[in-house]
Every structure is written in C-alpha cells, then in structure tokens.
Design a protein around this nucleic acid. Structure first.
Length: 298
DNA sequence: GCAGTCG
DNA sequence: CGACTGCAACGCTCA
DNA sequence: TGAGCG
C-alpha cells in the first residue's frame, strides 16, 4: 500500500447486498493493476463514482477535480469533435498510469472507470474499435451467436478481435488497431461491419437505436466508437449487485460464460492464469485492407 | 468525496 | 454554521 | 424543436 494514497473510510460499504467496502474496492484495483494498466494506460478516463454506495445515485465525472493530486496525469481534449471556426470547449481528463492512480480514484468512490479508445498523445486516432453486444433478453443464445459470428466476420476481414464481458449483461468485442484512421473513419467502418452482420442475421440482430424498432433483437451498438466516447475499462467493477467485473475472455470461454460470473470476489482465479488478451497490441492492424474486403462482401 | 454556495 | 448541490454531453431518430 | 436512446 502506498503512503501517498490514504484510504478514507475503508470500511464504508459500497455494495450493500455483498458487503463490499471501499477498502475492498481499492484492494481489488491494486490486485488487477498489473493486468489492467497495460490495457488502459494513456487513455483519458471518465469516472463513474458512487461515494455513498451503489444504493445511492452515482455520477459521471470527466473533468478532473481541482482537489486531485498533481501526480495524477492529465490530458486536455476538445469537448466534441472539432468544428471549423467555433469556440472549442475543452475538458481535462485524468489518465491512469499506475496502481496508485487506480487506488486514488477508487478512494474517490470511482467504482467504474470508463476509458477512451485512443491514447495520449494521439487521441484522435483510436487504437481500438469496439462492438457492444447488448442482449434483448436473458437468453444467452443470441448473445453467444452474435459474439461468435462477429468474431468470424472480423476474421474474414483480416481483423483480430478480443472478447470481454461488459460486467453487466452483455459482451464487448474489441479490435486492436494501428492508430492511423481518424475517430470518424473508425466509427463509419464499425457501422458497416455491424450492418453486414445484421444483414446475415436479420431476425436476431439489429443496428437500430430505437428500442421500439428492435423487435426483441440483440442490439449491435457501435456508438462507443464516436469521438470522446468511452467503454467500461477491462477489469472495471460495475455498480451492480454482486460487484461484477468486466473481464477479458478467451474465445473458447464464450459458450460457458454467463453474466455476473466474474466478480471482485472471484477475480483471483483469473489472475492466476495467463491473460486472454496477451498479445492484443501485437495483433493491431490497419483498417484499409479490411475495408476493401468488407466492400467485396457486398 | 469534496468544494463551492446558499440561507 | 450546516444544508444543499454539482460532478458528461454525442449523434441519431422520430414525435 | 424536443425527447428517447445508448
């Protein structure tokens, strides 16, 4: 435990149904830090904080608090996509690099860090593209089908993809990229992929944002690929009963995985084994060749 | 969790 | 002094 | 023009 991150009220209960305290949360983030930090280092962070526990309302925080210690790295980024000749609002985000950073945020009641898909200093060129698979029901069949078929489609396009639980009900499929394309281009590409997948399974999946038009189909959400958008960080704890966590999964685990399987209390089992996302950075590719293949699919 | 503001 | 209040905000689609 | 949606 580091002297520079004093934990205030470590026995304060943040998950009433589970008895998980703030001290437990800090210990969790310190335990997963060796796995988590390489995946989130350099990414601007939005904090989802519940200082009074998940039973009370939480809030999102982008702008670093004025009281945050100066050893927390920051990056200032435009609030929104740059527009010509308009006044540009800016936000100064925290950037996690060390276990102390995670511990400090946890002490602030940050249960879930949400991270950008790009890293400083190259924040306008994402190094990841993400597909959020949002199930319409408790039935895991469509969710598993979506993940597996998306994995297959991306493979056809020559893109490596990595699976993680969202920590909530769904799954995230992450494609590592060589940071080259602009955020908008990545988003456009992800839309095309999602629509191609939905076209292959029109009765099961949709890219339709409106619930009324989904007709019970699983939602392929690519919205997280937009500028200044975030996803729940790998190994992030979610503010839900059971203190579930978002964990990297091996593709071979897909058919056995169930929502809520991995929690603050069970994470040690996974830390004892190699990380399923080992090699994710080495697998990064550019989108241009994949774009040609996608166009050829018709 | 904390700083700022209100009464 | 204690009580109260922020702490995000993009782009899309449809009423 | 505004609200739901993520």
């Amino acid at each position: 435990m580091s002297d520079r991150v004093p934990i205030t009220h470590p026995d304060k209960v943040l998950f009433p149904a589970d008895g998980v305290t703030k001290g437990d949360l800090v210990a969790y983030y310190r335990a997963v830090a060796p796995r988590m930090l390489p995946l989130i280092s350099g990414r601007p962070v939005t904090l989802q904080r519940f200082p009074d526990g998940i039973g009370r309302g939480g809030f999102l925080q982008k702008q670093v608090g004025r009281h945050f210690p100066d050893w927390i790295e920051r990056v200032t980024a435009p609030n929104r996509r740059t527009r010509q000749a308009t006044v540009r609002e800016e936000v100064t985000y925290a950037v996690c690099r060390t276990a102390d950073d995670l511990a400090y945020l946890a002490n602030q009641g940050c249960i879930t860090p949400h991270v950008w898909l790009s890293r400083v200093p190259d924040i306008h060129h994402p190094d990841q593209m993400v597909f959020d698979l949002d199930p319409a029901s408790e039935d895991l069949g469509p969710l598993r089908l979506a993940a597996a078929s998306l994995h297959g489609l991306l493979d056809e396009l020559g893109l490596a993809s990595f699976l993680k639980s969202s920590g909530s009900r769904g799954l995230h499929v992450v494609v590592p990229l060589v940071p080259a394309a602009e955020t908008d281009a990545v988003k456009v590409f992800s839309i095309a992929v999602a629509e191609a997948l939905a076209a292959r399974h029109p009765d099961d999946f949709t890219t339709e944002g409106r619930i009324a038009k989904r007709n019970g189909r699983l939602y392929l959400d690519i919205g997280r690929n937009g500028y200044a958008q975030t996803m729940a960080a790998p190994y992030a704890v979610r503010a839900r009963p059971g203190a579930p966590v978002s964990v990297p999964l091996d593709w071979s685990e897909l058919d056995d995985w169930v929502p809520g399987q991995h929690t603050v209390a069970t994470i040690d089992d996974r830390l004892a084994r190699p990380d399923p996302w080992d090699g994710i950075e080495a697998a990064a590719t550019r989108l241009d060749e994949a774009g040609a293949r996608l166009a050829a699919l018709g």
